[in-house]
């Protein structure tokens, strides 16, 4: 009897020991998610284009073991198309939101340096970009930059930084008024040194969250641009193109054309979100202990 209780306690202790270090667990989850995202990206790159050549003998098949996601009206395997589409989406999402977040960081930090005219000018530019309807601006920029992948990337990258730039500006202003910044100045450190060592580390969580929140936006805008014909060309297997194509066949009962690619897109976005949450826990000593 006593033995059993002791054993039980031991095993629960061991279990706790395994889970106790949340930092290790968080790192493991983050690495796993990163590997999954990288896997999707690589599979999209590495799978040969021969796998999605049109084959009318295989057209409009329901999901089966051979074609887990079914096939479309041209007999192309939807699993391969979806993976390739997600791969393109990951590229567009990461590059565009990465560039956008870096712009936001630079602009936001510059606005908060205390130079009055610069602050006014940057706020004016932010109001200007925010004031123009988003899709119109995206179409204009993407069209001016020659459409295609390049046009979409530039268009999404230069229109998404405004909100994050405002947040970073106010955060920097708040940090700049702290006593330890005053002390650092009196210790003889330059404004640049203070920005790099004191202020930028405080921006990391905001930066990461902004980056992650931008990712789904970037993908949505990529697909909407593509849908409207100003984005990626129709022969590229982008998720936006797959989804807009599937709309035509949805009423004919071909649910798998929209369901699986849509589900995969949601999972992808959620994985990015979880990755960001884990990184935030690791980087922010405050929230890590809460």
């Amino acid at each position: 009897m006593n033995n059993a209780v002791a054993e039980k306690r031991m095993s629960s202790l061991e279990k706790r020991k395994f889970y106790r270090n949340r930092r290790t667990k968080t790192i493991l989850v983050a690495v796993f998610i990163f590997a999954a995202l990288l896997g999707v990206y690589l599979s999209g790159i590495l799978l040969s284009d021969d796998l999605i050549t049109a084959d009318f003998s295989q057209k409009a098949l329901k999901p089966s073991l051979e074609h887990p996601f079914g096939t479309d009206m041209l007999g192309r395997d939807m699993l391969v198309r979806t993976l390739k589409g997600l791969s393109v989406s990951i590229v567009v999402g990461t590059v565009a939101s990465g560039v956008s977040a870096v712009i936001a960081l630079i602009v936001g930090a510059a606005a908060a340096t205390g130079v009055s005219w610069l602050d006014h000018f940057i706020n004016w530019v932010i109001d200007l970009v925010m004031g123009i309807p988003h899709t119109v601006l995206l179409i204009l920029i993407s069209f001016a930059c020659g459409k295609g992948l390049k046009g979409v990337l530039i268009g999404v990258a230069v229109t998404h930084w405004t909100g994050l730039a405002r947040i970073i500006r106010s955060e920097v202003l708040q940090i700049r008024s702290q006593q330890y910044i005053e002390v650092s100045k009196k210790l003889g450190h330059s404004s640049w040194w203070i920005t790099v060592h004191h202020i930028l580390p405080h921006m990391v969580p905001q930066f990461m969250i902004g980056l992650i929140l931008m990712f789904p936006h970037a993908i949505m805008h990529e697909s909407s641009l593509t849908f409207l014909g100003f984005g990626l060309s129709p022969e590229q297997p982008a998720i936006g193109i797959i989804l807009s194509e599937s709309m035509k066949y949805l009423s004919a009962g071909m649910w798998w054309l929209a369901f699986f690619p849509g589900l995969m897109l949601v999972i992808l976005v959620l994985l990015f979100d979880r990755l960001g949450e884990n990184l935030k826990k690791l980087m922010d000593p405050y929230s890590a202990q809460e």
Partner: peptide
């Protein structure tokens, strides 16, 4: 105005005068 200051101030609340990160 710039550089190392020969006058140093110690504040009432040290937790505000040290970068929490």
């Amino acid at each position: 105005a710039k550089g190392v200051c020969p006058v140093q101030l110690i504040y009432q609340h040290p937790e505000n005068a040290i970068n929490p990160r």
